[in-house]
């Protein structure tokens, strides 16, 4: 087979570098307590090193050094979360089953070993009910309504910014169907889903859409990137898509076909 020369070494290297940017790795966990505990516990051993035996009169040095080390360790881990690569707005797949797409983070794995939903989950932070008109005035993104579902039974605004602009607008319909609209330009992501291995790709208005056919555990991630485990709940089948600036999450449609039909009437 002839090797296509149009794909030269420079192109491939550049492509691989770009690929690296699309690979999302999980957030480093908070290692601060563990590292601090170990550094403190290890301190006597460190002091016994001949090169670091304190001279009489400068005994404050080791403890100062230790305090500095602990402080540095704390700083390291505390700031880590703030400099994580932001969630990608478009399709990104991870190498180990983590998938970030349209403001949601899907952790795929065995549902049996995943986190369990709260029996009585809390709603999203600072949630309140509002009229559709008010939602449209307050939100920084256009609040669209799927014509197929019509006027929602309830409109919920959640997690407002300082000026009251909600980060999430939810249209709630009868029968357990809800459409979450989320300002997708904001980082970090919006929710984490702990889904089983099933995910399917479709298309809405020329853009990829992700279908999670099985019930899955869902939790809210606020604008600081903090996971709200108290919101952890079991979510029904969900379609996720984005128009480039706003991310949509339609939950409770009976089938992918119906979810797509609803999504395509969004206006």
């Amino acid at each position: 087979m002839a090797e296509p020369r149009r794909d030269g070494p420079v192109d491939l290297a550049a492509e691989l570098r770009a690929l690296g940017g699309w690979l999302d790795t999980p957030e480093p966990p908070d290692l601060r307590p563990a590292v601090r505990a170990r550094l403190t516990a290890d301190e006597p051993r460190v002091r016994r090193l001949p090169s670091f035996r304190p001279l009489p009169g400068v005994r404050w040095l080791p403890s100062l050094r230790r305090r500095w080390l602990v402080a540095a360790a704390a700083l390291l881990v505390a700031l880590t979360l703030a400099v994580l690569p932001p969630g990608r707005a478009a399709v990104a797949h991870a190498v180990t089953g983590l998938l970030r797409f349209a403001g949601i983070e899907v952790h795929r794995g065995q549902p049996s070993v995943g986190p369990t939903p709260n029996p009585t989950p809390s709603p999203l932070p600072s949630i309140r009910s509002a009229a559709l008109d008010e939602a449209r005035r307050q939100a920084r993104f256009p609040v669209l309504v799927p014509a197929r579902l019509g006027v929602p039974g309830e409109v919920l605004l959640a997690d407002p910014a300082g000026d009251g602009a909600p980060r999430v607008v939810s249209l709630v319909y009868r029968g357990g169907v809800r459409l979450d609209e989320f300002d997708g330009r904001l980082e970090p992501g919006f929710v984490k889903s702990m889904a089983g291995p099933q995910t399917e790709w479709y298309e809405v208005a020329g853009r990829p859409a992700l279908w999670l056919p099985d019930p899955h555990v869902l939790e809210y991630v606020d604008r600081q990137g903090v996971r709200h485990t108290e919101t952890r709940r079991l979510a029904a089948a969900t379609l996720v898509w984005t128009d480039g600036t706003v991310s949509y999450r339609l939950e409770g449609a009976p089938s992918a076909a119906e979810a797509l039909a609803i999504a395509r009437t969004l206006a």
Binding site: L16, L19, A90, V91, H93, E200, W201, E203, G206, P208
Partner: peptide, 30 residues
């Protein structure tokens, strides 16, 4: 390791747009 790949799957073989094509390319590359 073998991970379930994102990007357009067989359910949407004719997914239009550069984004879909690029996603497919990334999957191939990975």
């Amino acid at each position: 390791r073998a991970a379930a790949l994102g990007g357009p799957g067989p359910e949407a073989p004719d997914l239009p747009g550069d984004a879909a094509l690029a996603a497919e390319r990334r999957a191939t590359l990975l």
